[in-house]
Write a protein that binds this DNA or RNA. Sequence first.
DNA 1: TATGAATGAGTCTTCATTCAT
DNA 2: CATGAATGAAGACTCATTCAT
Lengths: 223, 223, 223, 223
Amino acid sequence: MSPAHPARRGIGRPPQGARADARALLLDAALELFAEQGIAGTTVAAIAARAGVTPAMVHYYFKDRERLLDAVAEERLLKAIRAVWEPVMESKAVVPMVRGLAQRILQATELNPWLPSLWLREIVSEGGQLRDRLIRVLPFESVRHLIDSIAAAQRRGALNPDLEPRLMMLTVIGLTLLPLATIRLWQVLPILKGVTREDVARHAEALLVSALSAPVRRRPKSA
Amino acid sequence: MSPAHPARRGIGRPPQGARADARALLLDAALELFAEQGIAGTTVAAIAARAGVTPAMVHYYFKDRERLLDAVAEERLLKAIRAVWEPVMESKAVVPMVRGLAQRILQATELNPWLPSLWLREIVSEGGQLRDRLIRVLPFESVRHLIDSIAAAQRRGALNPDLEPRLMMLTVIGLTLLPLATIRLWQVLPILKGVTREDVARHAEALLVSALSAPVRRRPKSA
Amino acid sequence: MSPAHPARRGIGRPPQGARADARALLLDAALELFAEQGIAGTTVAAIAARAGVTPAMVHYYFKDRERLLDAVAEERLLKAIRAVWEPVMESKAVVPMVRGLAQRILQATELNPWLPSLWLREIVSEGGQLRDRLIRVLPFESVRHLIDSIAAAQRRGALNPDLEPRLMMLTVIGLTLLPLATIRLWQVLPILKGVTREDVARHAEALLVSALSAPVRRRPKSA
Amino acid sequence: MSPAHPARRGIGRPPQGARADARALLLDAALELFAEQGIAGTTVAAIAARAGVTPAMVHYYFKDRERLLDAVAEERLLKAIRAVWEPVMESKAVVPMVRGLAQRILQATELNPWLPSLWLREIVSEGGQLRDRLIRVLPFESVRHLIDSIAAAQRRGALNPDLEPRLMMLTVIGLTLLPLATIRLWQVLPILKGVTREDVARHAEALLVSALSAPVRRRPKSA
DNA sequence: TATGAATGAGTCTTCATTCAT
DNA sequence: CATGAATGAAGACTCATTCAT
């Protein structure tokens, strides 16, 4: 209750400037565990343990389990998502736009191995615990730009009209984050053994490019 | 403890023929809640409440939270999965095989609205609580058949060699179950408003067909 | 609540004359389990299972867990105890009285293997669940007779005056039921391996007889 | 889950030196209640209540009901047992050895009033909850020494050959702990009213000494 | 900053008991 | 007689959270 309590000074702001890395370690630990076990399956104590601190420290830095989730969403996930989406605005043609998006998603998962799992389980899934935290702040202009560009291309007859522009975002995710979320399975399931990240990249690109560049049904040249 | 105890009779065997539906109601309730909130986020008491019975009934019928999950996996999920995958064996050509698969997935989600969410969160995801229960019993011959057929087509030069056959299963899921898992978002997110199941079906088909049927001629630099 | 309900007709009275043995089987099962695991550690369901009936039958025959214990105490334990103690009244000399008692205890445990365990755990022990049920109905005249006989012998100088007559009952039990309660240990503990019931009988008798027959300190013949 | 969690530090190690007595208070409370009601009849909540803390504290200090039992066995019972048995090694003659043993048992029960009850119900009895915990760690060299000494004396003809050396341990217990376990009964049962600890001591000693010291001359048929 | 102690609320599970059939 | 279905109450255990130090 004392106003001097650092955690009261504002969510997400590291207390002092000094040993602020415990906070970062906690966020890292949280992300790892959330990716491994899901948010609902991860206790505050487990996060503390992986970060090498006391459970009480989690409350010292974040005040609250909920506010730890806030911090995870705002300081980590949102950043990764922005890095992936914002460059979309800079492309004009659809194909490079989508290829670039897919490539950046792949890159982002290398830096942030927790991304595929968290995205599928906590953002995309019904009742995911990060959904509400992120839904309001996603970079919608970029998504909008993507959708509009595709729709425009379709109107120009340059693109298969059966594609649904609004689903393209989910399509790219389904071709990148979804397979990457199963990475551990690749080592266990004989049927998937030997698949690599590069396979995922090439496969996704092949699918996207073939779908986007050629209008599927040869329509009469004329008209 | 009595040998008449339902939980002892083996999973899947309803007690008597009479008012044996409490068990089925519990499975239904469990599936709904698991899809809405995730397994980890769903309490036994919540399942009982939705089924309109006491928490003790869950233990009466399933003995155990874990064995309720067993029953969910074996009696519901596995059945849906088999219905989707087994007909794959009957196709010879790749395109109808994949189209049929995608169509059956879409159909299955109409009957079993819990399917997309559970698949993403509890099977595909790291640490998903149904993964271990299902991974051993999936219809691998069908998956194998799909993979082999694609690889054969590639060797014949009839298919884009950049596609990774082993990823095709995940691709189909990524184009069907993933978007369907976000169905509720479609009503909330302005950017997705108005998307329909049919859009998903058409979009997925368009992508899959264009990727599979168009032999990839090195595009002439010109044109 | 129906007046026709047999169990209402009086505790301990078998319903009808017909298949009255389920009741006896239940008492047998209860005694076995109580001896093996203690009363507190034995569930009604376990008793039913061992007797090969439904848990509900236990309530049908005994109405209540408490009344099952009543029946166990009154119909089984008390009978065994009386058979052991009542002949005490017929002896006049101390030594045969005590020897006979010890012998009958040993015999009783052969017919009723549950006797040592139940006696130690549920009668002798603080808070034993049969203590209150039996304490009022023990054959005190016999015990009284034993005590008085010993005291008289001591007054005659025929017995070691350091023996406490009131403790002789416990002493006999301590030399018979206590070792017999450890019978399973004899097979496990190398240090006890090979001890037999006969050893217990001989050992107890040797101790009792030597203590009772010879006044220990050679007191001055004169006086 | 944190490494600082007391239950992780290993049983027996109290956290800090400070207010570390909650743990000890819990052990004391547990012993009292176990003696009064038996282990199976004692809830974790009851132990906490008697110690004046929350049930959660029991788990804080012992992690587990089972591990509370471990601690009770290792930290309290085993110590009392060792104090009683180890000095046996120092005696050479049988009579002082057994008298000393009996005396130390009596002393131990003054310091540890829970000893008789726990010994009878939880160690000696079939299925006693401390049996397995203690059986492996009892001071068997001392018991062995006692047995061997008695057997040697018997071979010398100095002792009644009908005594079974392996039963002497149980005999001493039967003459000391068994009557002491009934101490509350002494105040309730008219027939035992007025017995004292000293009576038990004298009675046990009288029995043991007369049995051990009197070489058993085959009683002359006559006289 | 940092932690150990402490707790209340909630979760899973067991069990005696009831009752309609 | 007999049982399956159903339940309330209680017990063990977990966990986020607080607080004095």
